[in-house]
């Protein structure tokens, strides 16, 4: 059975391995250079205290590669589900070969066991290697990323650490189960993609924020959390807009960033700007004054940021919990596919 599974899986396994090997080689070759450039930049910027500027420049240079890598790692499990999972059963049903192979000396339960184990483990291994490599390669960039692409933010978190393994295992058995249900390859692929994308969107939108109670804290305004200050021409009201960032919490996943007025009332939430009582005609916020002093001045008037966020130190806890959730989904679908192949499939 192992022989047959490998014989049927060989071609696509080799293709995938080749593609991943190219990616791995590229990462291994460029990774050390990236890390060196980052280390050199940090050493230099700490001397004259210009590190925020260095982060921006450094991240800017690699943002394209960074984003493409993340998307590739998000797509990998979907591809596994579509091209390894969905056709596993439907290919046999469409060619009628299930009638050949299930009438040999092995039961169809054993047939499915070997298929799921061998191909499933390969899928998990592929996701593991790719996930770890990307995590290692991206380390300097994760340390310098813009708040929207912080390490805990949905798009980045899902492409780091061990969660890709959970996604890959889940997508694979999802494809197999979909194939058993709809019995046609194209329909099974469409169903797999639809369900997988829905789950991948629902996870960060609905489930992940509640894995732990988010931290809510009030912070003074500074360059780190103020996104923009606008002063009406000729010196009018000063409007403030906050960023989705928390001072001293680089890499955190900011769920909400609200502006509080001196009485503690929320006057602006995510991305909105709000007028303040700070003078725009004189003082640090007046046109012509150095802009660096303005956030401090607004803060001094009693304006604060109230942020709700998951700090970066929860990264591994979240990774384990989420991988566990996907492992549970995988086990459930595996159970279903065994039940279905014994009871319903013919």
């Amino acid at each position: 059975m192992i022989w047959l599974t490998w014989r049927q899986f060989r071609a696509s396994a080799v293709t995938t391995a080749a593609a991943l090997a190219v990616l791995a080689a590229a990462l291994v070759l460029t990774g050390p250079g990236l890390a060196d450039r980052y280390a050199a930049g940090i050493a230099e910027c700490t001397l004259d205290d210009t590190c925020p500027r260095f982060y921006d420049l450094f991240f800017d240079d690699y943002q394209m590669t960074f984003t493409v890598l993340n998307l590739a790692l998000l797509a990998l499990p979907a591809l596994i589900g579509l091209f390894w999972g969905a056709p596993l059963i439907t290919r046999e049903l469409e060619a009628g070969t299930h009638l050949l192979v299930w009438n040999q000396g092995v039961t169809r339960v054993r047939w499915l066991t070997v298929k799921l184990a061998l191909i499933g483990l390969t899928a998990v291994a592929a996701a593991c290697v790719t996930g770890m490599l990307v995590t290692w390669w991206s380390r300097p960039l994760d340390s310098s990323a813009v708040p929207e692409l912080a390490q805990m933010s949905p798009l980045v978190f899902s492409a780091r650490g061990i969660v890709p393994m959970g996604y890959a295992a889940f997508a694979f058995v999802l494809g197999v189960s979909a194939g058993m249900l709809v019995r046609r390859t194209l329909a099974a692929m469409a169903l797999t993609l639809a369900v997988f994308v829905a789950v991948q969107i629902a996870m960060p939108m609905v489930v992940r924020p509640h894995l732990m109670t988010p931290v809510t804290a009030v912070h003074e305004l500074s360059r780190e959390n103020v996104g923009g200050i606008s002063v009406r021409r000729g010196g009018g009201e000063v409007r403030v807009q906050l960023k989705n960032a928390v001072p001293g919490q680089a890499g955190a996943w900011v769920l909400a960033s609200e502006l509080l007025d001196p009485s503690g009332k929320v006057i602006a939430s995510d991305g909105e700007d709000s007028p303040t009582t700070v003078s725009g005609t004189s003082g640090p916020c007046a046109p012509g004054a150095s802009p660096d002093g303005c956030p401090g001045e607004i803060s001094a008037q009693g304006y604060r940021q109230q942020a709700t966020y998951h700090p970066l130190d929860r990264f591994w806890a979240f990774q384990w919990i989420e991988t566990g959730i996907y492992a549970a989904l995988t086990i459930g679908l595996t159970w279903f596919s065994f039940w279905w192949i014994r009871r319903r499939l013919s």
Binding site: Q8, A95, G96, T97, L99, L100, N103
Partner: peptide, 11 residues
Amino acid sequence: VGFVAQDTPVY
């Protein structure tokens, strides 16, 4: 029991 299915499927 040996079974040769309709249309004799092979891989």
